[in-house]
Computed example of a mutant assay.
Amino acid sequence: MGAGWTGGAPLALGVGDVLFMPRGADHYLVDSLDSAVTEMARPGEPREVAGAGVRTALLCGAYELGRRRSHPLLDELPEFIHLPARLGRHPALRGAVDLLAAEIAEPRPGSDAAVPALLEMLLLFILRAWFEERTHDRPTGWAGAFADPAVAAALRAVHEEPARAWTVPDLSDIAGVSRATLARRFTMTVGEPPLAYVTRWRMLTAARLLRDTDAALGAIARKVGYTSEFAFAKAFKREYGMAPGQYRRTDDQPPLIAV
Rank of each mutant, 00 (worst) to 15 (best):
G2Q: 06
G2T: 00
A3F: 00
A3S: 04
T6G: 07
G8L: 12
P10D: 07
V15W: 07
G16I: 08
D17F: 08
V18D: 01
V18K: 02
L19Q: 01
Y28A: 00
V30N: 01
V30I: 07
D31S: 12
S32T: 08
D34L: 05
D34V: 09
A36P: 10
A36I: 10
V37Q: 02
M40E: 03
G44A: 13
E48Y: 08
V49L: 14
G53P: 05
L58I: 12
L59W: 13
G61Y: 12
R69V: 11
H71Q: 03
E76F: 07
L77Q: 01
L77E: 09
H82A: 05
P91E: 03
A92H: 14
R94C: 11
G95D: 12
A96G: 08
L99H: 03
E103N: 10
I104H: 09
R108D: 07
D112L: 15
D112N: 14
P116T: 02
M121T: 15
L122N: 07
L123V: 08
R128G: 03
R134Y: 06
H136Y: 09
H136S: 14
G144Y: 05
A147H: 08
D148Q: 02
P149K: 00
A150C: 04
V151Q: 05
L155M: 06
R156D: 15
A157C: 10
E161L: 09
R164H: 11
S172H: 06
R179D: 15
A180I: 08
R184S: 13
R184E: 13
M188Q: 09
T189G: 02
E192L: 08
E192S: 06
P194K: 03
R200P: 04
R202I: 01
L204R: 06
T205W: 00
A206H: 00
L217C: 08
G218W: 00
S228V: 04
E229C: 06
A231E: 14
F232P: 00
K237E: 15
R238N: 11
Y240K: 03
Y240N: 10
M242S: 13
Q246M: 13
Y247L: 13
R248C: 07
R248Y: 07
I257M: 14
